[in-house]
Design a protein around this nucleic acid. Structure first.
Length: 326
DNA sequence: TCCGTCTAGTGATTTATCTC
DNA sequence: GAGATAAATCACTAGACGGA
């Protein structure tokens, strides 16, 4: 052992107490006198002592680290500011609870093992948050086999009754946005997406469903377009883009000579890029930071074996808004 | 030389027992 | 009751040792 290293033993020697007493002071035990507590705390402060998390983990069988697995192959995730807002929410809660945050990917080595698999098998973390795109039967089995607590972020597509989820209410978000456009006087409100996205992402299917139901309630015909041409042919007054990617795609196409000049734009959640637009964007706010926070709270509750941990937390959308440009 | 077994050590915590 | 002490525990590694 490095003699210069400050350990609990060293603190105990300097304070003239036993290391078990220092441990009790660190953990707020009630059976320590105020005098001893103050003395130990003074030494701890004087020597700037911080308990060794690895050794602590050794004793309590914990790592005090929470992992987030992302799909590094999904470039859309990194291009999407949703992703960073969500991470911010997770990190806020994790760090406030004295845990650390580990980002890992599905990156595979030559032997076929992924970083995610290794982290789970080697118990490098106490729990995992993973996006729904990575939640599948194989990962479910892996996590269950190693008794690794986990929470899924995103759409509740399939599942096992024992899985905890956090998701945004995408149907309600679509409803708010459609109603916003209706209140602004638009009637030919159409939705824009692409077939691949419908098949791939359940949240898009939910948004389409929310849009369809609202249009039906308003007594208006719903129409889901997958091209600018279809929007033009339908005399679109307002177009709801299912994702920001699709919104940018639409703007690019119109800039390339496929005009859709009069149609109002609508989408889900705000984007810092809206300030550079030369037209207004109607959007419905989604608190993704809160979504991340809820996922982290849920996971910590499971790790710490709290009772009555909910299985599903749904984050409601805010009121619809319009970007500042007029 | 290789292989298997045993032991000590790592740091913090917990627990049982003891002393004051 | 407050606090000290010793041992066990956690999971793993390094090194020593003996036998083949």
């Amino acid at each position: 052992m490095n003699e210069n290293k400050i350990t609990i033993q060293k603190i105990a020697e300097l304070a003239g107490v036993n290391k078990a007493t220092v441990s009790r002071v660190l953990n707020g035990s009630a059976t320590i006198s105020q005098k001893t507590k103050e003395k130990v705390e003074r030494i701890i402060k004087e020597y700037n002592y911080t308990p060794n998390t690895i050794a602590r983990g050794l004793a309590v069988n914990k790592t005090f680290t929470v992992g987030f697995c992302h799909d590094y192959k999904d470039k859309r995730a990194f291009a999407n500011h949703f992703f960073y807002k969500m991470l911010q929410g997770i990190e806020n809660v994790i760090y406030d609870n004295d845990y650390l945050f580990l980002m890992m990917s599905r990156h595979e080595r030559e032997d076929g093992t992924s970083m995610f698999e290794r982290v789970v098998k080697e118990r490098r973390v106490d729990g995992v948050i993973l996006p729904s795109s990575l939640y599948n039967e194989a990962n479910y089995r892996l996590l269950k086999e190693h008794r690794m607590p986990f929470v899924v972020l995103g759409e509740r597509e399939f599942g096992h009754s024992d899985v905890r989820w956090v998701d945004v209410d995408n149907r309600q978000a679509a409803q708010l946005l459609t109603e916003r456009l209706y209140e602004n006087g638009y009637r030919r409100i159409h939705l824009y997406t692409d077939q691949e996205a419908i098949a791939r992402d359940k949240f898009i299917a939910d948004r389409i469903d929310g849009y369809n139901r609202t249009m039906e309630k308003l007594g208006l015909p719903a129409f889901v377009a997958t091209s600018v041409g279809e929007l033009q042919a339908r005399g679109t007054e307002a177009v709801i883009c299912c994702t920001h990617e699709q919104l940018f795609e639409l703007l690019k196409e119109t800039a390339d000579g496929l005009p859709l000049p009069d149609a109002e734009l609508g989408t889900f959640d705000e984007n810092p890029m809206f300030q550079y637009f030369k037209r207004t964007v109607h959007y419905v706010s989604i608190d993704l930071e809160k979504m991340g926070e809820q996922a982290a709270h849920l996971l910590l509750s499971i790790i710490n074996q709290k009772e009555d941990v909910p299985h599903f937390v749904q984050i409601p959308a805010f009121l619809a808004r319009t970007s500042d440009f007029e």
